[in-house]
């Protein structure tokens, strides 16, 4: 199975840990960004897009607990996986962090094989979760399209990305899109027919009005007078 590569934010106030983790992660093909403390980490998380955070606990000012709390309270980032970096003699902190929503922990000193395994498992879980979220969002798009269809403001290309899926949902999207396009096309044809009929009716009405006038006694008299006048003028 191909290993997933990710954008990883390493948060550690100790330069040696940052250096070692950066080196190990880059060797494994990941893209790495470094934060020297909790404050910088939060700024970087607000500004950038990451797949995973490796988080030290004991840091000045804003520590790992605080960073974790803020991440888990942020609806936009609460699903971002966090692996806590910790010495084996700090298990109580690790347990607390996992209770707060951290995904896993990585013992110091770092073992590259364990690092690879935990990062890989975490990124795979994130990939599956992202897929599930995307699936549910696209299901919601199909139901919204159905509501838009009923309301008469459906636009067929709003389902293009759902229809592009290779699975059953994609098939549903394609069928829905095609049927909707047919309904829209039929509606447009009916509208055109109604428009054409209206023009014909208008023309018939005008013809009828003209006939009504030309067949009236008054019109006949006028026409007769015009004839008489022409004769006088011709003589």
């Amino acid at each position: 199975m191909m290993e997933i590569k990710g954008r990883i934010l390493v948060v550690d106030d100790y330069v040696l840990n940052r250096m070692q983790l950066k080196r190990a992660l880059e060797t494994q093909g990941h893209t790495v960004a470094l934060a020297e403390d909790g404050r910088q980490a939060l700024e970087m998380l607000n500004a950038g897009d990451y797949d995973l955070v490796l988080l030290d606990i004991l840091m000045p000012e804003i520590d790992g607990f605080e960073v974790l709390t803020r991440l888990k309270n942020d609806p936009a980032r609460r699903d971002l996986p966090v692996i806590v970096i910790s010495a084996l003699d700090e298990m109580e902190n690790v347990v607390r962090c996992i209770g707060m929503g951290a995904e896993d922990f990585l013992p110091k000193p770092f073992d590259p094989l364990l690092l690879r395994a935990r990062i890989g498992a975490c990124l795979e879980k994130k990939r599956l979760r992202d897929q599930e979220v995307e699936y549910l969002q696209q299901v919601a798009r199909v139901t919204a399209a159905a509501a838009a269809m009923e309301a008469g403001d459906f636009t067929p290309d709003s389902l293009d990305d759902v229809a592009a899926r290779p699975d059953e949902l994609g098939q549903l999207g394609r069928v829905f899109q095609r049927m909707a396009q047919e309904v829209v096309a039929r509606e447009q044809a009916l509208k055109q027919q109604v428009h054409d009929l209206r023009i014909q009716v208008d023309e018939a009405r005008k013809a009828s009005q003209v006939a009504e006038i030309t067949e009236s006694d008054y019109f006949q008299q006028l026409q007769s007078r015009v004839g008489d006048l022409r004769k006088i003028l011709d003589t």
Binding site: Y14, L16, N17, L58, P60, A87, K108, F110
Partner: peptide, 15 residues
């Protein structure tokens, strides 16, 4: 501060 400084020194030294 003692805890944090000793923590970092411990980590680097152990590695």
């Amino acid at each position: 501060t003692l805890q944090r400084a000793a923590h970092s020194l411990k980590s680097g030294s152990a590695s």
